[in-house]
Simulated scan of single mutants.
Amino acid sequence: MGRLAGKIAFISGTGAGIGRAAALIFAAEGTEVFGCDIDEDSAAGNASALRNGPFGTTHAEDWCFTIKNELDIAYFCTQAASPHLIARGGGAVLNVASVAAVRGAPFMPMVPHGAAKGGVSAMSLHLCAAGAPHHIRANTIGAAFLCSDEAAFVNGADLMVDGGDSAMAG
């Protein structure tokens, strides 16, 4: 029996990448996984799609596309799951953010992506506050262990799993 036995997870972007890896790990740990993806051959993980470009020349369409596909999806999926989490007596929301939310990347222009993932991080903090009375925790990261009972005291965290890159000047 795994650490997530008896839990239910909805994971977006399960066709490939991080979403697929997360679904497989959750299932191996005993979770009943419900997954979705817009394209089973997609290279985007966690229902993410982005269009980056230099700040001064990024088109409005590219900005809106990235916000829609990285922030809006996280918001609306979580909003739809909220009544079910409340009815179950609580649960854990795990959103995938990015180091781009807290640090600029001089080697690659990522303003739309960084803004969207910054929104995901901020949204998770607000979910932490809104969910607390219902025993719903919210975190941002890319690791399944934060949904286990072993992490019951982890709430409102924005953990960067990036090999220490976010801690180093670049």
Rank of each mutant, 00 (worst) to 15 (best):
M1N: 11
R3V: 05
R3A: 05
L4G: 10
G6R: 12
G6Q: 09
A9H: 05
G13W: 06
G13P: 04
G15L: 05
G15K: 01
I18N: 01
A27E: 08
V33G: 01
V33P: 10
D39M: 02
D39V: 04
E40C: 15
S42K: 09
A44R: 01
N46F: 13
R51A: 14
N52H: 06
G53K: 05
P54F: 11
T57N: 12
D62S: 09
I67N: 08
K68R: 15
D72R: 15
A74D: 00
T78W: 08
Q79C: 08
A80C: 10
G89Y: 11
G90H: 01
A92N: 12
V93N: 05
N95S: 14
A97Y: 02
S98I: 03
V99P: 06
A101Q: 00
R103P: 05
M108E: 15
P109C: 00
V111P: 02
P112I: 08
A116P: 07
K117S: 12
M123E: 10
L125Y: 12
C128P: 11
C128Q: 06
G131A: 00
A132S: 14
H135L: 12
L146E: 10
L146S: 05
D149K: 00
E150H: 14
A152Y: 12
A152L: 14
V154N: 06
V154F: 01
D158Q: 13
V161E: 11
D162R: 09
G163M: 12
M168Y: 13
A169P: 01
